[in-house]
């Protein structure tokens, strides 16, 4: 499934998502560049999470969800029948809005994904490396046996990031990773995202305009039409979207004049 001929890591073509009869998102064309941070922004209910979850087939678990169009990962449609979603998720990791460590030790939280994916190397080293990359190592190195839930909210979220990093994905999807955190913790996660972008491709959903402006290279602005169906209104390099948006709607939203 590796096809490096495409310059983009992920590309959607005419992506439409339905929940039962409800047309949630229509005609999304997005191109995600390697080792860049792409932010998905837009009003609540416009389908950002829906689109994000399409990238690693997390929508498979919603019985009513139905997908049309293509999501190319290195040029290969991940919705082709011959693609195993387990493999997709192994390469495209996810960090959720609410920190959700497993109710296990910190060590096991990080190690578990590697174990089930058949990791053969030095597990201790992998755990340390992943925690270091998630900028959590110094805080937890003395209590790796402690339950993941004994950490603060911000630490939990970094633990979840470390957990995602431990299986060595190419892409990390983040759905409002800082919305449950205080500003300081949020800033730390933002710093972390910028560092991680050197090695990973990151797609992040956020409601925080400053955050999108600060960390992302590209910004995709979604909004809804009169049927409440979400669509991609504008997509481009972040500075352009924030300073010279082409669309009136984008400009209104970004400047805070949106409904």
């Amino acid at each position: 499934m590796m096809n490096t001929s495409s310059p983009y890591v992920i590309e959607t073509q005419d992506l439409n998502v339905f929940y039962g009869d409800f047309h949630a998102v229509k005609n999304v064309q997005l191109r995600i560049e390697k080792h860049k941070i792409t932010a998905l922004i837009g009003p609540s209910g416009c389908g950002k999470s829906t689109v994000l979850r399409c990238f690693n087939r997390m929508n498979d678990f919603i019985p009513t969800a139905r997908i049309q169009g293509r999501v190319l990962f290195h040029g290969k449609n991940i919705y082709d029948p011959d693609v195993d979603p387990v493999q997709v998720r192994r390469r495209i990791g996810m960090v959720f809005q609410k920190p959700n460590p497993f109710p296990k030790s910190i060590y096991d939280n990080v190690a578990w994904g590697a174990k089930i994916n058949g990791f053969r190397g030095d597990l201790d080293q992998l755990v340390e490396e992943s925690l270091r990359r998630a900028a959590l190592w110094d805080e937890v190195k003395d209590k790796l046996d402690a339950n993941g839930y004994s950490l603060s909210g911000g630490q939990q979220q970094r633990l979840c990031i470390a957990r995602a990093l431990a299986v060595k994905p190419e892409v990390i999807l983040m759905d409002e990773p800082t919305s449950a955190l205080d500003p300081i913790a949020s800033l730390r996660i933002e710093e972390l995202m910028v560092q991680l972008a050197e090695e990973y491709t990151i797609i992040v959903v956020t409601h925080n305009m400053q955050q999108a402006a600060r960390v992302s290279d590209y910004t995709a602005f979604f909004t809804v039409d009169e049927h409440r169906t979400g669509y991609l209104e504008e997509f481009g390099p972040t500075p352009e979207i924030f300073t010279t948006p082409k669309s009136r709607i984008t400009e209104d939203y970004i400047t805070g004049r949106f409904g």
Binding site: R89, N100, I116
Partner: peptide, 27 residues
Amino acid sequence: VPQAFREASLGLGATQWQTIWSHVLPN
């Protein structure tokens, strides 16, 4: 058992049975 555990597990590339065995059942 919170849906979040299932999603976290599946998001790491676990199969559904691995998710059930390691996270759903213990909890």
